[in-house]
Computed example of a mutant assay.
Amino acid sequence: MATTTDYGSWLNTVGDLGVAYTIGIAVGDYEDDYDVDAIKDEYVDAIDAALPTGVFLSGDEFIGPFHEEDRHFNGFPLDDEGELDIAAIVESIDLMAIVEKHELWTIDQVAECLGYTTASAAGAARKKLSSWGVKAADHRPDSDSGRVRAVYLRREVEAAVEARPGQGARTEQQT
């Protein structure tokens, strides 16, 4: 087993206080509109996948091989001192694309997307999501009433809308 050493903290290499802080900047004041835990998991996985073998992110610290013969960084960006440029690797990850994948919608937003406007729009939207097999991503307290309400991943709702019957080729009407 190779001996490892600290390659620097998130602050020293990326310039922010930590992974959670960087994600907080990305979502801004809309933290409740996103599955932040899923964003963090996917972001860290993407960073670990982009780093060379043997280098990884542990919390807010980058860890990697201590001995020179264990460092296989060919093809990876290097800084001015010839060391692994972790900041460049992290910057190559599209955090906003990850954030967008984890946007959460309330049932009212789903109803609006479906074009439902009547008083029973929320109920109709729930029924439609159920028929499409779209399940709630989480349950969270409503900011106005305090009642726990389901939230749905926007991408799953939009994918279900795109795939709904009647969209695209009408293959059931063969002549």
Rank of each mutant, 00 (worst) to 15 (best):
D29R: 02
D29C: 03
D29Y: 09
Y30F: 13
Y30L: 14
Y30R: 15
Y30E: 15
E31G: 13
E31N: 06
E31R: 14
D32E: 12
D32H: 11
D32R: 14
D32A: 14
D33Y: 12
D33Q: 12
Y34C: 05
D35I: 10
D35G: 11
V36M: 02
V36Y: 00
V36R: 11
V36Q: 01
D37C: 03
D37K: 12
D37V: 14
A38N: 08
A38W: 10
A38C: 09
A38Y: 07
A38E: 09
A38V: 11
K40T: 14
K40V: 14
K40S: 13
K40A: 14
D41S: 13
D41C: 01
D41W: 07
D41L: 10
D41G: 08
E42Y: 00
E42W: 10
E42T: 15
E42K: 08
E42P: 01
E42N: 00
E42I: 09
E42G: 02
Y43D: 07
Y43E: 02
Y43A: 05
Y43P: 11
Y43K: 01
V44F: 06
V44T: 03
V44H: 05
V44Q: 09
V44P: 00
D45F: 02
D45I: 15
A46I: 13
A46D: 01
I47S: 01
I47G: 03
I47D: 01
I47L: 02
I47Q: 02
D48S: 07
D48A: 06
D48R: 08
A49G: 07
A49V: 06
A50I: 00
A50Q: 10
L51V: 08
L51F: 12
L51H: 08
L51D: 10
L51Q: 03
P52R: 04
P52W: 04
P52H: 06
P52G: 01
T53Q: 12
T53D: 15
T53S: 15
T53Y: 09
G54C: 05
G54V: 10
G54T: 08
V55G: 05
V55A: 02
V55R: 00
V55T: 01
V55D: 01
F56A: 10
F56S: 14
L57D: 00
L57P: 08
L57R: 01
L57M: 12
L57C: 01
S58R: 13
S58V: 04
S58D: 05
S58N: 12
G59I: 14
G59S: 10
G59E: 02
G59V: 13
G59R: 03
G59K: 04
D60V: 06
E61L: 09
I63M: 12
I63Y: 04
I63T: 06
G64A: 04
G64C: 06
G64T: 13
P65D: 07
P65W: 10
P65Y: 05
